[in-house]
Design a protein around this nucleic acid. Structure first.
Lengths: 247, 247
DNA sequence: CACGCCAACTGGTATGATCAGTTGACGTGT
DNA sequence: ACACGTCAACTGATCATACCAGTTGGCGTG
């Protein structure tokens, strides 16, 4: 019913504004940022706030700062990390970037079966216990919105069990990206969420340590949901194109 | 001969020190950071430097900051992104974290064939031209150290051609991780770097748009170099264990 | 024309004051 | 004894101002 009121600090605001300009190509690679003193005047904030924001941009690999020289915008495609993905999914107009979305789906598509495989190879008894418990919850859940949550939880458990920190961190970045279009996914993937059998089969294969089968079932399941999302993106792009044509 | 002298700002130093404590589990998830005022006294720097560092930690998903409350350490395994990988490869003692290294190799192992596949599906004439040009350079190159550079360049071109921003960003994070043990890789993978035939075959398949073959050759090549690295890690861990036993 | 100096930028650090949200102890009233 | 409101003492957030330090380019001197 009620949502926590959103509040962000000034440096957050500055950061998001600058990041938006960089990811939106309004600030291109090679461009120089205005000096900190100019920026804090333009934005009407203190220099500390500007500096904190720029430090974050630097941390994200979006700019290069040189003591004494100007701060230069970098090409995020070659210097940013996977954590920049959430910032690329939705543009300033609130539209989904179809290319980015396809990339993300593809990434999930190839990671998931391997996560299932490694989970089968490395799962501890505790991890399997948690899986069983989650599956029980899943079976009792009829509400799609709640089911969606448990499904994401399922993959968290798997990547936990896989004992692969790179998979884990990559999935974190993907999760943050997905969370931006959570409600949309509820609609697109509703049927997939209710296909508890697939998750049971994956869990069963993991329990047996059958890596090949865990991977195969996961791949089949993910390929299907990927197809659904690709199809949605096609129609989404078509509607975008149509709007553009009318305008 | 000469290297550019390394210099880092105070806030960089503070950031790395805090990050090291968090990734090294000396600051565990749920712990609270000392207040900014205390920290800048402990570290002997001004508060601005501490704040910039904490903003970066927040950006990296390592801490949660609340206005009025204490700053809490988060579990990086569940809240950090793939860009945290470089910080996890080498511990404070300068030793390679074998588990992390295995994760990285595995990640590269499953990404590379798919990158080659998508490159075959999406390569533009310009991308193919660049590939040809790089292969020519590769053939003329006999020095392993230089070859290594061109090999990494090869994968950059492929991920560029794949037109997948998620692959691109993930590879960026992996590259930053690899660069920390660049010389070590020179030794381990020397033979692989000289196997120009493999790269030529991948490029040829991409040129023909033969996604399956591009993927298959890439997989074979990457599986081999992964095996070399896994083998090295096994012996590395054995030597670590031995040192520990002696001490 | 080559060189070196220097002024005017740039970012980096320091200080101290004040605003704003959170917490917990303390006292009051029931 | 317990519920509640108050408030002091934390916490981070913001601000203003000064000064340190590295870079750049122009200007004058040789």
């Amino acid at each position: 019913m009620f949502e926590t009121v959103k509040k962000q600090s000034l440096s957050d605001e500055v950061f998001h504004q600058l990041r938006g300009r960089i990811l939106g190509d309004s600030l291109k690679a090679g461009d120089e940022l205005p000096s900190e003193r100019i920026l804090c005047e333009l934005l009407g904030v203190n220099r500390g706030a500007v500096r904190e924001a720029i430090k974050r941009l630097q941390q994200a690999g979006l700019v290069q700062v040189r003591h004494g020289g100007a701060t230069m915008v970098l090409d995020y495609r070659s210097s940013a990390g996977l954590e920049m993905l959430p910032g690329l999914l939705i543009n300033e107009a609130g539209e989904i970037q179809v290319d980015t979305a396809r990339s993300i789906i593809r990434m999930r598509q190839i990671l998931s079966p391997e996560i299932a495989r490694d989970a089968a190879l490395n799962a501890t008894p505790e991890a399997i216990k948690k899986l069983d418990s989650l599956l029980a919850t899943m079976r009792e859940q009829s509400d799609t919105a709640h089911l969606q949550f448990t499904v994401f939880e399922f993959w968290e458990l798997l990547v936990d069990a896989s004992n692969n920190i790179a998979f884990r961190l990559a999935l974190n970045s993907l999760r943050k990206t997905y969370s931006q279009i959570w409600e949309l996914l509820t609609q697109i993937l509703a049927d997939d969420f209710h296909d508890v059998t697939a998750f049971e089969q994956i869990a069963a294969a993991i329990k047996r340590g059958d890596a090949e089968r865990a991977s195969a079932i996961a791949r089949k399941h993910i390929d299907h949901s990927s197809a659904l999302m690709f199809a949605f993106l096609d129609s989404y792009q078509a509607s975008l194109d149509q709007n553009q044509q009318e305008a």
